[in-house]
């Protein structure tokens, strides 16, 4: 039984009103300050195209590539997509693309291929690029990487409330279950590990057919995905996740016809900002640029 004087309880959270009271994994102090320098404001591109998902549900590759390129040029204020990629990556980089293979809603292969192609066009050597998810800890490209791209679909998640860009890096640790406490609030801690910190140059939250509610052991029903037809692109994963979370919450409210909070609450997004300094989660620190299809945008 615990007799630690540093036990953190629900009351600590009520007292402080947010995530500030939580410590990291064992050994971290009760309150730690964000140790990473964050940008004052994070630019987030939300881009949509109503035709990227056909009525039959199939993904239209060329349209997806178009919206990816538009997002990239806008986020970096450059004239074309190639310049954007060259701005973020140089020919000497070794790039791991952290994808997500979750069966019902994986990162689309078309998007993975588009990212690989654009890296090659920017001058990165083919052999210095790899795409992986569950094997990243043993992947030589990831183990020697100088840069990372983080790409995954947004979905609700049993333990963390949302399967986010922040959450996508849990495969970098050997014991993911250690992060499941209090709705995976300490996920931001992973981003400060030496082998990861400051390596992520690009984050893409796939909003083509997000999952806004999960049921059953497999946490999936086709009833709870919808053709949103978008991508959220940012160099700041926290800001991208914060925007995505708002859209999911709005969809839940619309679908259930009442306020139906994401459960459990995705506390890890705010914690990644306030506790671990990974990025910005507050709307006043996010420059959201909406592009393309506006109907039912939900934000």
């Amino acid at each position: 039984m615990s007799t630690s004087k540093n036990v953190i309880t629900r009351r600590d959270f009520i007292r402080t009103g947010s995530c500030f009271a939580v410590g990291g994994l064992a050994g971290l102090p009760l309150i730690i300050q964000a140790s990473v320098k964050k940008p004052d404001k994070s630019r987030v591109i939300l881009i949509r195209d109503k035709n990227v998902i056909h009525d039959g549900g199939s993904l239209q590759g060329p349209i997806l590539e178009n919206i990816l390129d538009e997002a990239m040029t806008t986020i970096l204020d450059v004239k074309d997509s190639k310049s954007a990629w060259q701005h973020l990556f140089n020919p000497d980089d070794i790039v791991g693309i952290k994808s997500n293979v979750w069966g019902p809603l994986p990162t689309p292969k078309t998007l993975e291929a588009a990212l690989r192609t654009r890296l090659i066009n920017a001058g990165v050597r083919k052999e210095n690029i790899d795409i992986d998810d569950r094997g990243i800890r043993g992947n030589p490209v990831f183990n020697t990487s100088t840069a990372l791209i983080n790409v995954r679909p947004l979905r609700t998640h049993h333990w963390s409330g949302l399967g986010t860009l922040i959450k996508n890096y849990i495969m970098f640790v050997s014991s993911p279950w250690q992060y499941h406490g209090r709705a995976c609030e300490r996920l931001g801690h992973i981003w400060n590990r030496p082998e990861i910190k400051d390596k992520t140059r690009l984050n893409i939250l796939v909003m083509l057919t997000p999952l806004f509610h999960g049921v059953g052991p497999h946490h999936f029903s086709q009833a709870y995905v919808w053709p949103y037809g978008g991508l959220i692109v940012s160099t700041d994963p926290v800001a991208a996740d914060a925007v995505g979370a708002q859209i999911i919450q709005a969809k839940r409210n619309e679908y259930f016809k009442k306020y139906r909070p994401i459960s459990p609450p995705p506390r890890h997004i705010e914690a990644a900002d306030k506790q671990f300094g990974v990025g910005n989660s507050s709307s006043d620190r996010i420059e959201l640029i909406k592009m393309g299809w506006k109907k039912d945008i939900l934000i």
């Binding site: 615990s2 036990v7 953190i8 629900r10 939580v22 499941h180 406490g181 209090r182």
Partner: peptide
């Protein structure tokens, strides 16, 4: 305790044994 904390978070340690 992991199930209790999922439904009603009490603490980061298993204070109820």
């Amino acid at each position: 305790p992991i199930i209790l904390n999922y439904h009603y978070y009490i603490s980061d340690e298993n204070i109820l044994n």
